[in-house]
Design a protein around this nucleic acid. Structure first.
Lengths: 179, 179
DNA sequence: GCGAGACCTGACGTGGACGGGAGGGTATTG
DNA sequence: CAATACCCTCCCGTCCACGTCAGGTCTCGC
């Protein structure tokens, strides 16, 4: 059960710096499970796992540390609830807790799905780029290669920009909405 | 043909603030296509499109503004290269340009695919949570519900951590104390 | 019991991404 | 021609997520 890691080892393993871990401790995002009498932080395997989750949430979802904290804390609370729910105090309360947890989890899942969807769309766009380039490279002859077809929607601005002479008051026909 | 938008209109349309657009201008991320003599920024539809791309890249990939700038600039350079490549100066140069562009695009596509993959993994994890919770809710009886299986969590765990040989004996000493 | 590391707590600095106000032009309307 | 609504450029402030000393403490191996 002992088996603690010092901060330096944790840094080795995770690529984070001591300062970062200090900071995470400060803001309550990752409070080491144990401390020596002298104050040295001791991290457990569970702490390491939490660090990985933090990194994941940062990288994948781009969440802020406070958001991550909320999320992980909620998660843990949920887990504790689940554990405690078995020797439930009263049935309705247990159901309520579960339902609330379910709602949160569903919302998260939806948002992730949504993100995947959008990323997929984005990926397709990139793939089209790649294909177009490959095609251009294959028919090595430089002439007569048609410009890549208009991509998503509106055609890009031609060279027509040329400007309604800026200094002049007559200038641009502004498009514009209301007022 | 001009059809420019003032900064206020752009803000209306995009949800950004004037300050943000000023800032984007400052850092060269989005320099308005035109300016009035008085200095007022005039944005074109293409500018609006670029703004949307910026927002997308921020949201979806969580990129920093400088990264986005690199990306979009590269994209535009690529497009110009493509256009210029048709009346190519010399064949090898054209090929080189195309190949370079291809490399960039491929790398981007790969990184997006990678991200999608990881997000999908993450989504599965969430889905499992949801399913577990649903199951718990269905068999309303609180007893005998098995704890959700500890998720292995796909730990890459590159660096092997040697278990800390830290202070076995003193570990039991009280941790909360200040002197 | 002592020296070398590893670690601690402040405290200040930094880069990114803006927010917000002052002070002053500009453009449109009555 | 004045009022009004936008817009401009400084320029300082802020929040986040740390980086970077500085000075002191703790632990371990000898």
């Amino acid at each position: 059960m002992g088996n603690f890691y010092q901060i330096g080892e944790v840094c080795q393993a995770t690529g984070l710096t001591p300062r970062t871990l200090h900071y995470y401790d400060e803001i309550g995002l990752l409070v080491p499970s144990e401390r020596l009498a002298g104050g040295q932080r001791l991290y457990t395997a569970a702490d390491l796992q939490r660090i990985e989750e933090i990194k994941e949430l940062k990288r994948l979802l781009g969440l802020s540390l406070s958001e991550i904290k909320r999320l992980l804390d909620a998660e843990e609370a949920r887990r504790r609830h689940l554990a405690a729910a078995n020797e439930a105090p009263d049935e309705p309360a247990r159901r309520a807790a579960l339902e609330q947890a379910l709602g949160v989890a569903e919302a998260q899942a939806r948002s992730v799905q949504d993100k995947i969807h959008q990323l997929t769309e984005f990926g397709r766009k990139l793939d089209r780029h790649v294909r177009d380039l490959r095609r251009l490279l294959r028919n090595g002859n430089g002439a007569a290669v048609r410009q890549e077809a208009a991509r998503p929607a509106a055609g890009p601005a031609k060279t027509a920009l040329k400007t309604a002479s800026v200094a002049q008051g007559s200038a641009a026909t502004r498009a514009g909405g209301e007022r």
